[in-house]
Every structure is written in structure tokens, then in C-alpha cells.
Design a protein around this nucleic acid. Structure first.
Length: 466
RNA sequence: CGGGAUGUAGCGUAGUCCGGUUAUCGCGCCUGCUUUGGGAGCAGGAGACCCCCAGUUCGAAUCUGGGCAUCCCGACCA
């Protein structure tokens, strides 16, 4: 009996559950929207983490770590920053528990009330700039190019798996520069790093551009973003890079002596991507059979399923397949040889498709006789039988083929969506659409604003957003 | 925080309108035999505070009141 598998049209919750589950904490609204990342899901995040980290280091950045707790007063320092958020946050008010005098369990010790509340970081600009103040005295101390891998908490009113969980993992870069030009260049450079990562590793085409002033980061002079188009037609903000000007330097009094021996405020940037990228990955490539992972980020590259009728045959296959595994591993591939007897081959086929493993090999008695094996690629679900001879080379080539095919498929979809005339038509009907970004490479052209009718010389990208 | 829906076994569900034996079915799980090239078959078995609290009643998954949670749509997402 075939199990009923979820269809893409029903949203992606079943796919997420392969990677992540909603945390089963106490029945309190207090913990809603937290997630547990399962090992398979975390393996994908680790791959993203490692690759991004490599790219950050190649661009001269170093990792550091700053406190989880931020004194409440820090969040009041930068006016726009305060205005823009500081609302949906977790607040620590006490530092000790005590035994419940009325019974079992523990209660908050009222005597342990903090004089100043601590905020669980929603982002780290304030605490980092309060630290940078002590690090920066002279132009010789600049630039400071730091990145932090951490978790942050934002008390979202409505949570959504991966896209808007209360707690999420991310990376936040915070840089300090002597000149405006250098800071602006950094802002742009890191956006390019994100775009390259999205396109090369996630096989996810993105649009690069500016956020409209409305959607800018609180306290930033300019916010750059990459936006990706999901299969359901909605746009997803996949990463942002902010030019903060001197706002935080002024708020935290971070000045340096320049070569002319005069005091000057430091110029700042910040930039980040989060586990939301995993949501993007799923919604960009998955199909009705489950996840589809680009080889560059897949925790398992090749699953090998033996097919046999007896223990004797199983032993034969184990022997036969061992060198194939070795050959594949020698190509740098992660191989899963699944010879568990308790599951049937058909079950395993579905299992690895569901997990998005890029390539599956099936080898049975027939192949044993003919010296062949069956190769199935996840992106096209195309199956071919080919000789074992040279299989490792073939599979290694397939990885590149699948990686670029996934990008191509996603890019075709993107182009289809970005027929701007059509988009403009739709915006008239659906006012839900917002300006996602103003692309860098938008050609200068004359026109008029579809809303106000006033003359305009540039097109922007509208879409419904997550 | 507004509007709508939902809450029954690990998961998905029937039953709820119109109260009445031992709460239905499927998946999954356990045992045994047969199986293995696309989620195996048969037989047996275990598993449920029917979201919580209070009320009505001889009797509540079912009715009433309150609470909590989840999902969808808004607002919000720095």
C-alpha cells in the first residue's frame, strides 16, 4: 500500500519536518515558534555555514563572539534603531529561582530582580558598537572586520517555520571603517558575497538591489538586499547588507584620530543571513517527491541501494559494492551505502528522494551479472543503466550537471516571473505586493509610476513577500 | 493584536449537530512466517489524561462557561 505523500501545493511543512520540527516546549505562549533542527537539517546548515565562513575569511573577515544579553539602555542609544524596533524582544528581569514555598517546583525569586533588565539580542549592533568604542582610538585600528555566528531571538507575532521562527541561527558581520567610501564598498562587497553564495552553492538565482526607504533597517542609511523567487510566486528576502553611516558611531561615541590628527566618527556596516536560507532552499527546488538538494549543499551525495534475495547475495553485493563506494569517496563525495535488510528497495528509493539526495545507485543480481548499475538523478528523476566501469567519474560529473541544472530551472522560473509588464498588471489587482528591491542594474528608461502616474525613469521589482 | 478554522494513540483521522456498552479506521510500532528491481502480504499484539479547568447531567469526546495551543488570512517582520 502506497503511503499518501504530501503535495507541494499543500505548502512545504512535510519537507521542513525532514530537517526541522517545532519545539515541543511547555504549553506556554512564551515558547511558541522555536524550532529543533534535526541532524539532517543541521548538516545542511553546517555546509552553508562552512562555505560562507570560508568566503568571509577570503574577504578579510574574522570571527568573534559577543554577549547574548544586552542591557536595555543600549537599545535606547540610537534613536532610529529604537524607533524601528526594540519592541518584540525577550526580556530578562530576574537572575535566580527559589523553591516554591507553597508546594513543589520552583518559582522566580522576587529578591533577585535585576536593576536593569537584559534583552536577549535581537541583533548585535548595540553591544558590538559599545565594545568597538574601546577598540578604536586611531586610524591605525581600522578597519575592523568582524563576523559573529550566533542565535538571536525576535518575538515575532506570527511565526513561520524557518522563515520567521522566534529563535534562529545566523551570521552577522559588523565592520568599522575610516571613510564613507570604504564602508559603502564593504556593504556592496558583502552583498556580492551573498549573491555568489546563493547562486553558486544554493543554485538559487537572486536579484540584487536597494530596499526602499520604508523597508530599510532601522538606523541604516541604505539597505542592500538579495531577493529570491519561490516556486509559489512569492519573493523571499534572502540576505541584507546595511550601510549604517555614522549613526552607531555617534550613538556609542566611537571616534578615531585620523592622519590629520583630528577626531572623526567611524563609518559602519552590518550584514547577515540566517537559517531562513534553508527555507529558501526548500521552496526554490523541492518537488512533489520531496526535497531536492543542490550537490554543493547535500549532506549525502550518493545513496547506494543493493537489491538481493538472500543473505548470500547480500554478501556478494557488499563485496561488489565496497570498491565502488571507495572510488566515489575518492572523488570527494559523501556516500551512503544502505544495505539495511529491514527495508525494501522501493522504500529506500522513496526515502532518499524525499531527503533530496542528488544521485541514487541501485545494484542487484542483474547488474552483478552484467557489470552494470542503475543511476537515478534526483533533479530529473531520470534513470539509466550503465557499466560499473567509470561510474565514479560519471557520478562526479553528474554532480556538476545537477548543480547547474537546478540553477537553470530556477532561473527560468525567475525570468518568467520578472516580465515586469505582467507584474505591473498584477499589482493593480493585488495591493499586497510590495517593492521587493530596486535592482542595481535597472536600465534607465522613461515611464510613469503606476500608482501616482508621475514620471519615473526606473523600474522596480514588486512581489508578494513572505 | 484583529478575522476565520482546528485540537481524539508517534502521525493522519471517524464519532461531536441530536449525550448512552469496551472511542473508529489507516500509517507507523512489536512478534511470527512468507518476501525484496518503486513505500510488501498474512496472522497476532501493544499503544488514548478524547487540549486544560470548571459546570449541567444518573451518565460528557459530544452540551455550557472560561482558559491554552496550533494552522490560515491581515497587521508586524528591524
Amino acid at each position: 500500500m502506497a503511503k499518501d505523500f504530501p503535495k507541494r501545493s499543500e505548502n512545504y511543512s512535510e519537507w521542513y519536518n525532514e530537517l526541522v520540527v517545532r519545539a515541543d516546549l511547555a504549553e506556554q505562549s512564551a515558547v511558541r515558534g522555536c524550532m529543533v533542527i534535526k541532524p539532517y537539517g543541521y548538516a545542511i546548515w553546517e555546509k552553508m555555514h562552512d562555505q560562507l565562513d570560508r568566503m568571509f575569511k577570503q574577504t578579510g573577515h574574522q570571527n568573534a563572539y559577543f554577549p547574548l544579553f544586552i542591557p536595555k539602555s543600549f537599545l535606547s542609544r540610537e534613536a532610529e534603531h529604537v524607533e524601528g524596533f526594540a519592541k518584540e524582544c525577550a526580556v530578562v528581569t530576574h537572575h535566580r529561582l527559589m523553591n516554591d514555598p507553597n508546594g513543589s517546583g520552583v518559582v522566580v525569586d522576587p529578591a533577585a530582580k535585576l536593576e536593569e533588565e537584559l534583552i536577549v539580542r535581537p541583533t548585535s549592533e548595540t553591544i558590538i558598537w559599545s565594545t568597538y568604542k574601546n577598540w578604536i582610538k586611531s586610524y591605525r585600528d581600522l578597519p575592523i572586520l568582524c563576523n559573529q555566528w550566533a542565535n538571536v531571538v525576535r518575538w515575532e507575532m506570527r511565526t513561520r517555520m524557518f522563515l520567521r521562527t522566534a529563535e534562529f541561527l545566523w551570521q552577522e558581520g559588523h565592520t568599522a571603517h575610516a571613510t564613507r567610501e570604504e564602508a559603502e564598498a564593504e556593504t556592496r562587497k558583502m552583498l556580492e558575497v551573498y549573491a555568489e553564495f546563493a547562486e553558486k552553492y544554493m543554485a538559487m538565482p537572486v536579484l540584487k538591489g536597494h530596499k526602499s526607504p520604508n523597508e530599510r533597517f532601522a538606523g541604516a542609511l541604505d539597505t542592500l538586499c538579495i531577493e529570491a523567487m519561490m516556486q509559489d510566486g512569492k519573493a523571499l528576502q534572502a540576505g541584507t547588507s546595511h550601510f549604517l553611516g555614522q549613526n552607531f558611531a555617534k550613538a556609542f561615541e566611537v571616534q578615531f584620530l585620523n592622519k590629520q590628527n583630528t577626531l572623526e566618527y567611524v563609518w559602519a556596516t552590518s550584514w547577515g543571513v540566517s537559517t531562513r536560507l534553508m527555507g529558501a532552499l526548500i521552496m526554490t527546488h523541492s518537488d512533489d517527491n520531496g526535497l531536492v538538494l543542490p550537490p554543493h549543499l547535500a549532506p549525502i551525495h550518493v545513496a547506494i541501494v543493493p537489491i538481493c534475495k538472500s543473505d548470500e547475495q547480500q554478501r556478494q553485493l557488499d563485496e561488489h559494492i565496497a570498491p565502488i563506494v571507495k572510488a566515489l569517496e575518492a572523488k570527494g563525495l559523501v556516500v551512503k551505502y544502505d544495505n539495511r535488510p529491514e527495508y525494501k528497495p522501493g522504500w529506500k528509493f522513496n526515502e532518499y528522494e524525499f531527503k533530496g539526495v542528488p544521485v541514487r545507485l541501485a545494484i542487484g543480481p542483474r547488474d552483478l551479472e552484467n557489470g552494470t548499475c542503475e543511476v537515478c538523478r534526483r533533479d530529473t528523476l531520470e534513470k539509466i543503466t550503465m557499466p560499473i566501469e567509470g561510474i565514479a567519474d560519471h557520478v562526479a560529473d553528474l554532480m556538476e550537471a545537477i548543480q547547474s541544472n537546478l540553477y537553470k530551472k530556477a532561473a527560468d522560473f525567475l525570468c518568467h516571473w520578472d516580465g515586469t509588464v505582467e507584474t505591473e498588471e498584477r499589482i493593480k489587482e493585488e495591493t499586497k505586493a510590495t517593492i521587493r528591491c530596486i535592482p542595481f542594474d535597472a536600465p534607465e528608461e522613461e515611464g510613469k509610476c503606476i500608482y501616482s502616474g508621475k514620471p519615473s525613469h526606473r523600474r522596480v521589482v514588486f512581489a508578494r513577500s513572505y
